[in-house]
Write a protein that binds this DNA or RNA. Structure first.
Length: 102
DNA sequence: CTAATGACCATTA
DNA sequence: ATAATGGCCATTA
């Protein structure tokens, strides 16, 4: 597996998300200096399965948990396990949104 | 090079 | 609340 520079940057940020907190795709894209690359971010995360990246802590801006390579239900399960309250498929970003830091 | 794809987003109805 | 639409971007075929 070869990683592109973009993917490395994405993983770099995702790894900084503390346990029990989440970050949105848009936030990460913004942190990379590409506020409109949220779609590409999701794409990059889709291939992280071989790496050690807590991709389950990345959700949609709407609060919806978003997708997951191994199934959305799995994603929700892991989040709950970390102490995140999940209502249906939604999360309260006010409570669990991680603040970005450089 | 071009074209298609997708773990998205904001707007609109 | 849901559904459809256009846009954006890196990656891959």
């Amino acid at each position: 597996m070869t990683l592109t520079a973009f993917q490395r940057d994405v993983y770099k940020w995702v790894q900084q998300i503390p346990r029990g907190k989440v970050m949105t795709y848009a936030q990460i894209a913004h942190a990379l200096g590409m506020p409109q690359a949220m779609r590409a971010v999701g794409n990059a995360l889709n291939k992280n399965i071989f790496f050690d990246v807590p991709c389950h802590r990345v959700v949609r801006s709407s609060g919806n948990v978003g997708g997951y390579a191994w199934g959305t239900d799995k994603k929700i399960a892991v989040l709950r396990k970390e102490g995140v309250r999940v209502n249906g498929e939604y999360i309260d970003l006010k409570l669990y949104g991680a603040r970005k830091h450089s």
